[in-house]
Write a protein that binds this DNA or RNA. Sequence first.
DNA 1: CGAAAATTTGACATGACTCAACTGGAGTGG
DNA 2: CCACTCCAGTTGAGTCATGTCAAATTTTCG
Lengths: 193, 193
Amino acid sequence: MNTKPLLEHLVKEIDLSKEEQSFLLTQINYRKYLKGQYILQQGDVCKHSNYVVSGCAKMAYVDKEGYEHIVMFATTDWWLSDLGSFITQTPSDYNIQCLEPTEVIQFTQQGEEELLKNIPKFERLFRHKLQNALVSAQKRIILNFSHTAKERYLLFKKQYPSIEQRIPQYMVASYLGVTKEFFSKMKNELLSE
Amino acid sequence: MNTKPLLEHLVKEIDLSKEEQSFLLTQINYRKYLKGQYILQQGDVCKHSNYVVSGCAKMAYVDKEGYEHIVMFATTDWWLSDLGSFITQTPSDYNIQCLEPTEVIQFTQQGEEELLKNIPKFERLFRHKLQNALVSAQKRIILNFSHTAKERYLLFKKQYPSIEQRIPQYMVASYLGVTKEFFSKMKNELLSE
DNA sequence: CGAAAATTTGACATGACTCAACTGGAGTGG
DNA sequence: CCACTCCAGTTGAGTCATGTCAAATTTTCG
């Protein structure tokens, strides 16, 4: 029932047999978070890899001065975890917090291992997931170096047209790596151009 | 002979049988590049995934203004490719150029597929490789937002102590995302602090 | 040695940040 | 229904980090 979206999503990608599907179901958990709740808090070990069924969450790093830097947003069909903490089971440097009521399907590290062992197709799927994530992370590094905040903002709007409306603007600023004040001025200038 | 370092490196990580080793050898190629040579040029398809045996190379993006932005350096034991171009076999946005005479072992995309199909251990190994790369890419995104160029430079020195001596300083500047002029002034200030 | 490449220096320009004050909703409670 | 507060967003003045451009200096290497 609640896990249906995941199955549908996965079946599209790797075409699971009935047996594989039911095995998968033994390894996952459905969970619902309220707006504002934390899926992961800085300092805790990241116990779950999360597949977002609905809602919206952010992953962020809070620096020593207390400023928050948003690493990514995740909505339906996105995967979300602090990979570093998840695979090594060491305390995380990141927060994951829900910006809306959010439904997720969770894998524990053991569950993921079991899955990979028993259904090798998953190796390929997860590898693809990682590849895509790495490619876009590298792009973002270069983007931040080679473009002004204004340009980055325009690209962000193109790439995530739906997200901007759903969240407070100061979070968009944080994702782009600028202050909310500068972001506000920037948007103004864009209007009068 | 020339492929020995790769085997040794891999055997340490995944413990290959004799048969697996000899199969591996059928899927790889050894190649030597001179200083200055390109392993990959912007616009070409990335035909190979490269394991660096010796030497040093950089992966970089040249923007429309002609400025070069360095994504990463690779020395012994690093893997190097434009993953996006490699997996989709579409033209690359990056250059990979040797900064020293460099020996690499190359996998084609097909070769890599074969390897993964025939020696499932490789799935795990490659997944780990990707995980680590992704974790550090995400860290670098945040680092660039939350730290000044000076701080980033000090971290770079700690993390890659051997690289700074081997390459022209303007490339370090490019990796850090600052101009060579600013980088020069910055280092001066650090001395008198 | 001489030419090209790398690095440094200085004057000036600008993107982006800080801080503080202000505006304008969206509750909330009396 | 008003007064109050809280939070997001805006605005402005001043500052700082970093960029630009042009010239001078040093290093590298044929």
